[in-house]
């Protein structure tokens, strides 16, 4: 297999980079959306149950099915992959963000209000930092999930290492079929672990010591 890797080094790196870039972009977008929704939901508690229900339903829809649903609307290619990945990426982050924001001690919020902090300031300086560890845990789950979903999206000509896997499948019986599939899979695993490590480091850096 190593010859195989060496020969196609450029292609592998390129695909790995594309794959990771897509996922990072999608997860960032998803996090922003999810946190925004979560903030709204905690303002209007009645929305909590429907939000959770929708999130659960969303996660139940199989990835390939979503691809099938999006195809009529978007063309084959990276946009579709982005939307598909981002759609799923929202769910774990949303669930965790709601739990995290609701879990902020009410007495703390009252003290903040008593000190004269406005809504936005309270949100930015107290609620989100305190909910951040839980949100970050959701982002980690989301990232891992998204790496796998991006691979499936390659079927609709999305970018990334998924392409290697499908090539391997198409060439089944051929000399390099196993290699293609292995490189694709292991490459994704490696990138997923690297991203997870980076997120852990991000956590260490951004979560204040008092909360850890």
């Amino acid at each position: 297999m190593w010859d195989f890797v060496r020969d196609r080094r450029a292609e592998i790196f390129y695909d790995a980079w594309q794959h990771t870039y897509l996922v990072v972009l999608a997860v960032v977008a998803a996090t922003v959306v999810a946190v925004a929704i979560a903030v709204i939901v905690t303002r209007i508690p009645r929305l909590a149950a429907p939000a959770n229900a929708l999130s659960a339903i969303g996660l139940t829809i199989p990835a390939l099915a979503l691809v099938g649903l999006l195809l009529p609307v978007l063309a084959l290619g990276s946009t579709l992959a982005f939307v598909a990945v981002a759609f799923y990426a929202v769910m774990p982050v949303l669930r965790n963000a709601v739990v995290g924001l609701q879990g902020v001690d009410a007495t703390l919020l009252e003290s903040a209000r008593g000190m004269g902090m406005g809504e936005l300031a309270t949100l930015a300086r107290i609620r989100i930092p305190l909910a951040w560890p839980v949100i970050l845990a959701g982002v980690r789950t989301s990232t891992q999930m998204s790496m796998g979903i991006a691979a499936i999206a390659s079927y609709a000509l999305g970018p990334g290492l998924g392409g290697f896997i499908f090539t391997g499948l198409a060439q089944n019986g051929g000399k390099n079929a196993m290699n293609y599939a292995l490189v694709g899979t292991i490459g994704i695993v490696v990138m997923a672990l690297i991203l997870d490590g980076l997120l852990l480091a991000l956590g260490r850096a951004t979560i204040s010591k008092g909360v850890r």
Binding site: I152, F166, A181, G184, T185, I188
Partner: peptide
């Protein structure tokens, strides 16, 4: 962390 499609293939 392994992608489901990768594992199956």
């Amino acid at each position: 962390a392994a992608p489901s499609i990768g594992l199956i293939v």
